[in-house]
Write a protein that binds this DNA or RNA. Structure first.
Length: 211
DNA sequence: TAGGCCATCTGGTCCT
DNA sequence: AGGACCAGATGGCCTA
């Protein structure tokens, strides 16, 4: 466990508005040696892999360095809501140790939440036809933009097949992402055992040129 | 070196 | 009350 140091360590009577918490150098134990637990990140040959997602892609795992943190001050996120600082609401009857524990638990939950969000992004990347650019995976914004375009293109294809007018047109914003379009995912994923139906091939062919 | 992308921390707000 | 969600801040990594 990290050694949390407060301005008045050992007392529960400090004003939360003036307490400064910081990690000592040996606090890296919490970050570097703590079990990975639910996110299933495994280190292999210096790279980290997400065994939960089934991906062979190395998962970037960058440890944020410990830095001084002032609790109780109106730091980054206080732009909205009531003014903070002296007089701000405080939890009654919660010791500094308890607050620290809550904060660490909250951080862990937030980390898990972001990991699950990233897994969802990875799943989305897998189902969007694209070609890796410079041998790198799609960024998040590219993934979302491509997905949007893909849905629009598929919708238009369906409309065309029904003899209806296409629902969507593609504007310049849609062209921000320019990864080449892959006609057949099986070309991209040789081990993919999925079968592509005739209708799917038809749709795929009709969406050519939208990406 | 600047800029893009990202992970993480953090505190406020919303929801159950 | 506590967890989920959100957005701002920060700093590391990578590439042009």
């Amino acid at each position: 466990m990290p050694h949390w140091v407060t301005a008045e360590e050992g007392t529960d009577t400090e004003s939360p508005d003036q307490v400064m918490l910081y990690y000592e150098d040996d606090a890296s134990e919490y970050y570097d040696n703590k079990p990975d637990g639910p996110d299933n990140i495994e280190e292999q040959n210096g790279d980290f892999y997400d065994s939960g997602s089934g991906s062979d892609e190395p998962v970037q795992r960058r440890m944020r360095p410990r830095r001084a943190v002032v609790l109780g001050s109106s730091s980054s996120a206080g732009s909205t809501g009531p003014p903070s600082g002296p007089g701000r609401r405080r939890r009654c009857g919660i010791s500094a140790r308890e607050r620290n524990l809550r904060r660490l638990e909250s951080n862990e939950r937030e980390r898990m939440r972001m990991h699950s969000l990233n897994r969802a992004f990875e799943d989305l990347r897998r189902v969007i036809p694209h070609v890796k650019k410079d041998n790198r995976s799609l960024s998040k914004i590219e993934t979302l933009t491509l997905a949007k375009n893909y849905v629009k293109a598929l919708t238009n294809a369906i409309c065309t097949m029904r003899g209806e007018v296409a629902h969507y047109s593609f504007n310049s914003d849609d062209e921000n992402v320019e990864p080449a379009f892959v006609l057949n995912r099986r070309d991209q994923e040789p081990n993919n055992n999925e079968t592509v139906s005739t209708d799917q091939q038809e749709i795929t062919t009709r969406t050519q040129g939208f990406f």
